[in-house]
Write a protein that binds this DNA or RNA. Sequence first.
DNA 1: CCGGATCCTTCATGATACTG
DNA 2: CAGTATCATGAAGGATCCGG
Lengths: 146, 146
Amino acid sequence: MNTPSIPEVTNAESEADKTGEKMKIILNLARDLNQFCPVRDVVHRISDKWSLLSILALGTHGTLRFNQLKKEIGDVSQRMLTVTLRNLEEDGFISRKIYAEVPPRVEYKLTEMGQGLMEQTLQLADWANKQLPQIIASRNKFRNLR
Amino acid sequence: MNTPSIPEVTNAESEADKTGEKMKIILNLARDLNQFCPVRDVVHRISDKWSLLSILALGTHGTLRFNQLKKEIGDVSQRMLTVTLRNLEEDGFISRKIYAEVPPRVEYKLTEMGQGLMEQTLQLADWANKQLPQIIASRNKFRNLR
DNA sequence: CCGGATCCTTCATGATACTG
DNA sequence: CAGTATCATGAAGGATCCGG
């Protein structure tokens, strides 16, 4: 029905104000390491080796079967792709549809929330790309000082 | 019954376009696992156990000495905090100023890029918070189906 | 006070073999 | 085709001791 679009928060001026608010929230949430921390949780989910690639592949192609996805990603083992997909499914980022056929067929696609996650990730990616030269420079500088 | 607010489709087309562009970029970058991948790199940097908390603590307090930072975070070991700070420093997210005194004093603070990283993280955190109920619901549902 | 060096534990990843 | 089961391994995290 509705493709999740990004709300108009990305204003440079109001961002400073909102940053303060957000900071309080995340600080409280991040501090309680023993409790449920959504931020750490989401970061952890996308930080493993294959989740991002899986999400991006599904985001690009819409719907993929297991082996299509495997081929698309390339060097992922069967086991790790299964694990990755289960985790993403568990959190509701992808949906899994099983067809009772012979041979079996299973189709994966992003849920609406999964698309939201992808967009968040793309924003971060966008930022990361812009910082890339500076990061590389910083690393080289750091190396030379040691 | 508070579903996370999904904005209406205001400018779905331009957003979709932008997303498509970004996707191509990140896909190419993410695919070359052997090469340098800024996205994976940044995600990896903030996904370890203490980086986020360190960044947030410094973002909140501006400048902190080592033990202040350690106390602020709470349950981090001396070693891991050192490692974390070195990594963040290496990439240029924090700066480290050493005072040649006895006893030694070292002050840490976010660089400009570090503040940018924090803001990116806060945006992700904001999104994660909104999705939290849905994620929890999905997990419970998943558990019950097994 | 800050942090390097060492050793140890735990967990994610992966190679391989097997199954409905 | 799409998994599950088992075993091996390497990296991350952590405890502890040492040093400037």
